[in-house]
Design a protein around this nucleic acid. Structure first.
Lengths: 350, 350
DNA sequence: TGACCGCACTCAAGCGCTTCAGTGGGAGGC
DNA sequence: GCCTCCCACTGAAGCGCTTGAGTGCGGTCA
């Protein structure tokens, strides 16, 4: 059990005052090059690192950003999305020696409570916010607390009050949905079901709306969206229901990889051939989509890069950059064997 | 942007000194019941929360525990294991208002550097350590730093130096492996391949060893373990190799769910019927195992409970409890359709 | 009635760092 | 040769909290 070295130790060994040490180590003017070098050497030698607690207390911020995941435990731990996102976030934060404070809670209210607590406890300098909702209390809260933040997957319905350091990273769901509809329409599909995610989330609404828009543009009137909770159970359930209906769809679009795989299993169990009788598209690519049989056509996006972009922008906000809306790269459709020509259709000209 | 209320504010409003406030809010003797109540009321009213920075600085600890994941990014974000674990950890920590500082790095050396830095920066009071290795530098480091920790999945080869506040939470891989071998042997399998995880990890070694022991006990001499990096790619690769060998196994045990699914896909692609020609067992159950076709026989364990147990014990260590070795619940085998009688074998008496 | 005690509370120092107001001395200007 | 200015550095306060050493006061006991 070693004692942690402090600036006082460095000051003593280098024969200067504490303030000189502070100046030297923080690249501030006021010390000669020689002294600076000497202080640095001693600090290295002692293995000194600034105490974040002390830094935070003297107004420098906590060197930490927070991320809260508000999802019931049961829908957690399956999707590749979050760990990928976090791993990208880390990369950007580690470069700035920022820590990531992480918490999983049950719902948005609990998330707000955590944000409030972190703020009051002086724990974080900024926040990454995921899963924006249609009726989202968080932007207002962030504005009240004045905490810099990046909302990932925004814009939601609720705009961010002006003048607050809150940026939004926007995934182009409409564009992505257009590419999916293009693909399916080109293969001759006319009856499409969209098995969507949690109904309260902003991107669920956006996907549902753009499906309707894109379908209308191509004169497909027979499209439906069914919300779920993203779990394999509900994905399977919904699939079973639509396949048993009077006029089952010839293609299904799933809002995540897990449900798509579950849907594929349901098709297999009912003797529905994929892609012969039914085409399947998954939103978000992952190992899952590649290892099923047949492998699934999926919307591929670089989730880690997404996280990196969000975190990088957050560090810019912390440095005082103005808040903006930014746009993530458009996901691209990776066609695999789970989509094919609609039964009995002559493929439209591409 | 509100100013955070401090104890000074409370003191002023309640008409007492700051120390009285501190005593009142920390349930220490030295204030009358009336004053205590008044102070509490004012604190609530102001929405006061203690500044962790200030607390940490005055010797109270950072109210945070750390968790570092040392895995290359490519093997991340697929397994259900970690998010589940973390969600369990959170539950136990949230009850004590402890934060979780989380970081993903590339390898153990980087992990050690992070531990050192967190210690020097005063950021964490304790650590959760995962993926113990055969030749693990971390126990010695923890001892040097004197940081309380729980090593999850231990014991590794390297014991923890005595007198350090480091406990080990032990998963009974031998017992689990015994149940797997039992199951397969009972179905008449005599040639079994084990597609294992990262070779450096302690539990990989333990599983390999116990497979050998259990096989020996039942006079199966034809067992092999092949290490991989846990990725679907290597899982598929290894499967391809063993299926193409002169005497392919009749059963394969995979060290995680992802590789098992990948292996199943390889079997399908080569026209090997499961479970007709090949039985498959996955170590760690998840949605994946339930949604494949056929669903996979898997070793089910309550990963969230595992995390909860680890975190709960860590809080005990922080409270000064002595370090011990504890044992997690034995995983149980969930038989599904991916395992069946070995081709041409008369099942042994069960 | 005075010595003593314990209770309820205040004071001030200190945790490790930043920062602002000095301070001393050497260089430069006239 | 003296005044000024600037550079390199020091001193001390302060961030919000804990804590051990006081302080004053009402009550008990001889």
């Amino acid at each position: 059990m070693r004692r942690r070295p402090t600036m006082k130790d460095i000051a003593r060994r280098a024969g200067v005052s504490e303030s000189a040490v502070s100046f030297a180590l923080n690249d501030r003017p006021g010390v000669s090059a020689a002294t600076r070098a000497r202080v640095r050497r001693v600090a290295d030698q002692l293995g000194w690192q600034p105490s974040t607690a002390a830094r935070a207390l003297s107004g420098e911020g906590a060197a930490t950003v927070g991320l809260v995941l508000a999802r019931p435990a049961r829908t957690l731990g399956v999707e590749s999305f979050f760990l990928q996102l976090v791993s990208g976030v880390q990369e950007a934060l580690a470069a700035r020696r920022l820590g990531l404070l992480f918490q999983v809670v049950e719902d948005v209210d609990a998330e707000c409570a955590v944000h409030r607590r972190w703020w009051a406890e002086h724990r974080v300098d900024g926040l990454l916010v995921v899963d924006p909702r249609e009726d989202d209390p968080r932007p207002a809260l962030l504005a009240e607390l004045g905490l810099p933040a990046v909302i990932i997957g925004a814009p939601g319905a609720r705009p961010v009050p002006a003048g607050t350091p809150v940026s939004r990273l926007w995934a182009d769901d409409a564009g992505a949905m257009a590419s999916v509809v293009d693909h399916l329409h080109g293969l001759g599909h006319r009856r499409v079901v969209h098995i969507a995610g949690l109904p309260g989330l902003a991107h669920t609404r956006r996907r549902i709306d753009s499906l309707r828009t894109e379908a209308g543009r191509r004169h497909l009137t027979d499209v439906t969206s069914l919300p779920t909770d993203y779990s394999d159970a509900q994905g399977a359930e919904a699939t079973r229901r639509v396949l048993a209906s009077a006029r089952p769809p010839t293609a299904i679009v799933y809002d995540n990889d897990v449900m798509a795989v579950a849907g594929l299993a349901v098709a297999a169990e009912r003797g529905v051939s994929v892609p012969g009788d039914l085409s399947i598209v998954a939103w978000d690519d992952s190992v899952l989509c590649r290892t099923t049989h047949p492998p699934l056509t999926a919307l591929t996006r670089d989730t880690a890069a997404f996280g990196r972009q969000a975190a990088t922008h957050l560090t810019a906000l912390l440095d005082g950059a103005p808040a903006t809306d930014l746009r993530a790269a458009l996901p691209r459709l990776t066609p695999r064997a789970s989509t094919g020509p609609a039964r009995g259709a002559t493929p439209a000209a591409r």
